[in-house]
Design a protein around this nucleic acid. Structure first.
Lengths: 235, 235
DNA sequence: AATATATATTTGTACGTACAAGTTTGCTAA
DNA sequence: TTAGCAAACTTGTACGTACAAATATATATT
């Protein structure tokens, strides 16, 4: 395991403290000079760590005041749910894997083209149906290239943990991506999954996610019912 | 007019060169040392400017190689169009302002709540209908607080230039925001604008954009037909 | 000519200093 | 008590140095 640079170590440490709630929203982080002396690094290194926290949306900086904790940012792109009527908060979101993750061939990923390498190795494929308070709201298909993912098919793939699993188990970080969004009418398959009538409006997202590994992309297609819940995202 | 800091001036200069196509996609920027000596600033200052170009998606950096131009990034959040069948490229996107920008009172901005200050000053309101090759695809409502926007109602509000106008004329930069996305059925008003039948699926976006000015937010609601075009965005 | 090696170039990390600018805090004087 | 002011604190800008790591280039060797 390679040694991380100092500014990245500090970034990860502070990020964890915010994620774990040690520093809550509105709190002030220790000053740059304090972090500098405590962690035994130069102020410049501290600033680099804080810069990334700002970019990632964890903190806000105010000259003369300090670094104010903003909170844990929403998922990359559009991932979080938001109720139109009331707060979503403690509603129960259950995730059901349809079938098991399996390896199969692929020639294209929705509207995205694949490289020759990706075509050759095939993909890990799985579908999920997520329900809020018993009502299905999400149906998504995920495809990963069958590369460097030992024992992936036997992992528990919960909603929130997918990116964490990729980062911690396989050192793969999602750095960005592209998505296309459509409003469509529910087809037979979606009518069945969502238990809606023909013609019901459904949101469709085609997504291609970039990672820190050259040539490794994650593809997913998400269908969503937005009758009571809008898809919410920050940017 | 306040003097911009050196790193920001350099950032703006390089950004402009990329936007204008002087540095095209795939080109290498001058090295950090070269930029340093040419512009008469320290390498650290150059790096800060380049850092922001990386964050904004204009360039990619490779250790030992240099800074490779990535191109002009897509709009913040979801702004750009993308064809499902072929490249959009040179299709003609026309923008029509429905009515003129006008000042009016407001009590809420779509699903977003307003501050007391915002309610008091009222808002600048305008609607736009954008068509691709004669077919209407975008209908959007924009609302700005009636603050610090002298002569705004007499400006030409083209599609691409809104953010540029805000930045250059009023020193207001959009730093991020929140959006909610829904798939809905076209109501009477949308049926008329888009010339579609009842029940046609339409994309709706409610957006609240943050700016660098404290307390100044931009609100917009966008309706979009995605029959042939998906809404595309990078993140 | 092809390969291996050494050199130069370029970005990454990390340290340091100094001062400017904005905010908070505490003190002093009215 | 209040108001004003000075000091302390915190982040922003900008300069400098040094070396590491990755890439590109030129050189030498086979």
């Amino acid at each position: 395991m390679a040694e991380l640079p100092e500014h990245k170590k500090l970034y990860e440490a502070l990020r964890r403290l915010i994620s774990d709630g040690v520093y809550a929203e509105g709190d002030l982080l220790p000053s740059e000079n304090e972090l500098s002396s405590v962690h035994g690094v130069a102020r410049h290194t501290v600033r680099k760590a804080l810069d990334r926290l700002v970019v990632d949306g964890y903190i806000l900086k105010h000259q003369g005041k300090g670094s104010v904790v903003k909170g844990v940012p929403k998922g990359i792109g559009i991932l979080s749910l938001m109720s139109t009527t009331s707060a979503v908060g403690d509603n129960i979101l259950t995730t059901k894997i349809i079938g098991r993750p399996e390896v199969r061939a692929w020639k294209e990923a929705f509207t995205f083209e694949l490289s020759d390498v990706e075509k050759e190795v095939g993909c890990i494929y799985f579908e999920r149906l997520r329900s809020l308070n018993g009502k299905p709201v999400f149906y998504d298909i995920t495809m990963l290239p069958n590369l460097n993912f030992p024992r992936f098919t036997s992992l528990n793939l919960e909603n929130k943990s997918l990116f964490d699993v990729l980062r911690t188990k396989y050192q793969i970080e999602v750095t960005g991506g592209v998505q296309q969004i459509f409003a469509i009418k529910a087809d037979a398959k979606l009518q069945e999954h969502f238990r809606v009538r023909p013609g019901h409006p459904v949101l469709r997202l085609n997504r291609k996610l970039n990672t820190n590994k050259m040539g490794v992309y994650i593809y997913s297609q998400v269908f969503c019912i937005t009758d009571e819940l809008g898809l919410s995202g920050t940017f």
